[in-house]
Design a protein around this nucleic acid. Sequence first.
DNA 1: GCCACAGGCTGATATGGCTC
DNA 2: GAGCCATATCAGCCTGTGGC
Length: 393
Amino acid sequence: NRDGLDYEVDGIVVKIDSFEYREVLGETTSVPRWAIAYKYPARQATTVVDEIKWSVGRTGVVTPIAILKPVPLSGSTIGRATLHNADEIKRLDVREGDTVIIEKGGEVIPKVVKVVAEKRPRKSKPARRPAKCPICSSPLARYEGEVAIRCENVSCPMQVRRRIEYFACRSAMDITGLGTVVVDQLVSAGLVKDYGDLYSLKAEQVESLERMGKKSAPNLISAISDSKERPFDRVLFALGIRQVGLHAARLLASRFSSIAELARSTAEEILSIEDIGPIIAKSVVKFFQDEANLRVIGKLKRAGLKLSQKRKRKGRLPLKNKTFVLTGALSRYTREQAGDLIVSLGGKLSTSVSRKTDYCVAGENPGSKLDKAKALGVKIVDEEEFKRLTKKS
DNA sequence: GCCACAGGCTGATATGGCTC
DNA sequence: GAGCCATATCAGCCTGTGGC
């Protein structure tokens, strides 16, 4: 019905006002021009804020977290909720000791919705943002136009730990067995001062750590050694250059064939890459101007990591200019494999759905991205169809 | 300058598997 | 059995980019 309809699935009412006909990937199809999905309201719970803690991330951003009296909500027990930043604390006027209403956004993420003002303790004081880093006591800075407050000490022990964790994480060097706790131990024991030191670790050194033994120590050393095989773009991502995530790292790797070439490049040269703007370009240049970063890269080079790549010959790119979003679990591919496949065939992988998305690949238990894709008229494909699309090459 | 879009960053819980 | 890690899923906020 071109004029629109309302329908109901499992108690969820979807209203479609009208349709239009669009050319989607060579097929003429009808898509809703305007639609609203009515969903169940999020379930809420009431609890008390025991404490507001401040955590330090790898970039030095200091983030407030509400430590809550544990309360069951939507199938899990909530004990913490991010407060995002000092402005959010001010907006909510949340204080230690406050009774608050919480809910799980999208049934996953705990969120403080509001404070129950009438239950506020008499002597409560407004939460104050710290003047010093909670870890290293360095003064905190807040730059004009930025919401975040930052610890500027690049040697802050927490930043060092987080950078190493980031370097080792799955989407970077993918070092199995090197998680938060092991990184903490390595840094505390003085065995590692930066991620470059990982490659000179010996099994005997690791063995002496808590909960490490004759089996896990060699496993960790072997995992670190295996990571030397990660491709150039992953190494670039793992370096932790600010503003350079997986996507930007791939773009840089497609333009520069070695880290030396990238380090020599000017902001203008970097800026000439499509989708890279002045902020990212400046951030890359600044990274390679830092002596400490160059020293760590030296360690990586001596360890034999892939700091260069051969120019790729461009084969057929059947997915060229097509943007994909993945939601849910696929049975034949991990998310990473599916993403790599899309990129290798010329496609673009995105994390959020928009009108510009060409395909939403929906696996088992898809999330809200599928709803959004449907509402925007994005072509939805299942795993079989995804396989056919990628086989066309 | 405004706006839409995309990516980056930080944070959350649950569960299964592995190691000690 | 305890503890840790990996994995999966997503939110919310912020920022960068490019088009108009």
